[in-house]
Amino acid sequence: MATHLITGAGSGIGAALTRALLARGDALWLLARDAGRARQLAQEFTPAAEAAGGAVHTLVGDLADPDRLSWAFGHQQLPGELDSVVHSAGVCDLGEVGELTPKVWQATLAANLVAPAELTRLLLPQLRLARGHVVFVNSGAGLRANPQWSAYAASKHGLKALADALRAEESGHGVRVSSVYPGRTATPMQEKVHRQEGKAYREEAWMSPESVARTVLTALDLPRGTEITDLSVRPTA
């Protein structure tokens, strides 16, 4: 039984990956922003875990406030070892550079870049023990920046830099690091993005979260001694 920690498990790609790993009988630690959300995640996923012989645990820590993650974890039981940490949570607010306020920039960078860095730092001992794997669910915006996407793209470009540096630093400990760059995916975030763009949202026009989850599994399932560093996945339409 492998042990994984997933952020963003409540919806979209994170939820699809959680379901896929639970079906294997793995043990999952799901990060929730508060105790109420943790109870909801436990109630949602525990039946699937029990059916497959796996387990669901929750940790409380608000990615919007990375400065307090260390304090929050200090008051909770952490996993002893981790085969993977998958960073799937994120936020997105569109706007032109001339319109975006420091508050938007700071919130975007905190959730999408600083929090993954801090969460990884706090969990490196568990990852090193298991010679585990860190997967950053990035975005096509992590490779290019389009108009109105400056804050989000900057955070995702930074996430790529974080992954590249971490890979070089942790290779001696046997920790693998992968970045996955999905194109537009049918998630609640995508629906919000369409509202911000003033466009009609059609779920069937975009990739399913399950398709991206399978891409993450491809990275996780590679035999030791190999790693996917960067993997892009796009809708065919």
Score class of each variant (00 low, 15 high):
Met1Gly: 11
Met1Trp: 06
Ala2Glu: 15
Gly8Arg: 03
Gly8Pro: 04
Ala9Lys: 02
Ala9Gly: 10
Gly12Ser: 07
Gly14Val: 12
Gly14Cys: 04
Ala16Lys: 07
Ala16Asp: 06
Leu17Lys: 15
Ala20Ile: 06
Leu22Asp: 09
Ala23Gly: 08
Ala27Gly: 12
Leu31Ala: 08
Arg33Phe: 04
Ala35Ser: 13
Gly36Gln: 01
Gly36Ile: 01
Gly36Trp: 00
Ala38Ser: 10
Arg39Pro: 00
Ala42Trp: 03
Phe45His: 05
Ala49Val: 07
Glu50Ser: 13
Gly54Arg: 11
Ala55Gly: 12
Val56Leu: 06
Val56Arg: 02
Val60Asn: 00
Asp62Tyr: 01
Leu63Ile: 05
Pro66Gln: 00
Asp67Asn: 09
Ser70Trp: 06
Ser70Pro: 04
Ala72His: 03
His75Ala: 06
Gln77Thr: 11
Pro79Lys: 01
Val86Lys: 10
His87Leu: 15
His87Gln: 14
Ala89Gly: 08
Ala89Arg: 08
Gly90Ala: 09
Asp93Trp: 13
Glu96Cys: 07
Glu96Lys: 10
Gly98Arg: 11
Leu100Trp: 04
Lys103Val: 15
Val104Thr: 13
Leu109Pro: 00
Ala111Cys: 13
Asn112Ala: 04
Asn112Val: 02
Asn112Gln: 10
Leu113Lys: 08
Val114Phe: 05
Val114Asn: 03
Ala117Ile: 07
Ala117Tyr: 07
Glu118Gln: 14
Thr120Asp: 05
Arg121Ser: 10
Leu122Asp: 09
Leu127Ala: 12
His133Thr: 10
His133Gln: 14
His133Trp: 13
Val135Lys: 12
Asn138His: 11
Ser139Asp: 06
Ser139Met: 09
Leu143Val: 03
Ala145Asp: 04
Gln148Ile: 03
Trp149Leu: 10
Tyr152Val: 02
Ala154Gly: 04
Lys156Gly: 05
His157Ala: 04
Leu162Thr: 09
Asp164Trp: 11
Asp164Phe: 01
Ala168Ser: 13
Ser171Phe: 05
Ser171His: 15
Gly172Leu: 03
Gly172Ile: 05
Arg176Thr: 12
Arg176Ala: 05
Ser178Asp: 02
Ser178Leu: 06
Val180Thr: 09
Tyr181Glu: 01
Pro182Arg: 14
Gly183Glu: 00
Arg184Lys: 08
Pro188Lys: 03
Gln190Thr: 11
Lys192Ala: 15
Lys192Ser: 11
Val193Asn: 05
Arg195His: 11
Gln196Met: 14
Gln196Thr: 09
Gly198Pro: 09
Tyr201Gly: 03
Ala205Gln: 07
Met207His: 02
Glu210Lys: 14
Val212Ser: 04
Val212His: 08
Val212Cys: 11
Ala213Arg: 01
Ala213Lys: 05
Val216Ser: 11
Leu217Met: 14
Leu217Ala: 04
Thr218Ser: 13
Arg224Gly: 08
Gly225Arg: 13
Thr226Asp: 11
Thr226Ser: 14
Thr229His: 06
Val233Tyr: 01
Thr236Met: 08
